[in-house]
Amino acid sequence: MAQIVSIHSFRGGTGKSNTAANLSALLAMEGRRVGVIDTDIQSPGIHVLFGLSEEDMPHSLNDYLWGKCGIEQAAMDVTPRLKADLKGHIFLTPSSIKAGEIARVLREGYDVGLLNDGFRELINKLKLDVLVIDTHPGLNEETLLSIAISDVLAIVMRPDQQDYQGTGVTVDVARKLDVPRMKLIVNKVPACFDPEVVKAQVEQTYGCEVAAVLPHSDEMMILASAGIFVLRYPDHQITATLKQALAKLLP
């Protein structure tokens, strides 16, 4: 049975898309067939991590929502682009990065039921083991939908006062929506912080297990979304911590 994993954060800039891409790569390394869908229709970005530009995307999630193509046609097998020893596959369904198409979807809205059907069709047609949903930060219709249908929700936060309050809201909403498994990922933690103390404080604050405390990393900043960190730095501490996080998200 395929698992749906949503990667969410209340605020932008937490490293949500990076986390989604890296967890997907780790899953593909294990031999799984992974779908990644960018539901951040108004500010898409995860395609950059897989090395895609506008010209590389013949179809997008927008085309599917407008009835121009099937959802599986909007999904691209990005595995060969990663030039890594992956036993599995990663299929990315990007959102359009054309300004006119973003404006159109904001102006006209879209059929949320079709988006929900699309998640299931992707799983069935591509025979996925895991579908990773990269969401728009904050709480809106597509975010609430992805939280509601998820088997696993990973909430990414930074050790920042603004993130603390927003994360509390997201945790409350996810509890109301009966998400079966919810974990927190604390990202961009300054090196001077003790990860164990951060973990304990966050778990106490939200009553929710922390799957990973990821330190701020110059290598990650320098990579600047130009690739998948765990593939570039397979022996890095962040890679090891993300592997541990994955084991907690999908035991």
């Binding site: 300004a99 102006r107 006209e108 879209y110 949320v112 039921g113 929900n116 219709e141």
Partner: peptide, 26 residues
């Protein structure tokens, strides 16, 4: 039975804003 999800409505902003955007992005 399946859930009847309401269509996500477009943003309600003055039409001239969309027109201005359209002319910029075409």
């Amino acid at each position: 039975y399946k859930t009847f999800l309401a269509r996500k409505r477009g943003r309600e902003v003055p039409l001239n804003i969309w027109e201005a955007l359209d002319s910029k992005v075409r």
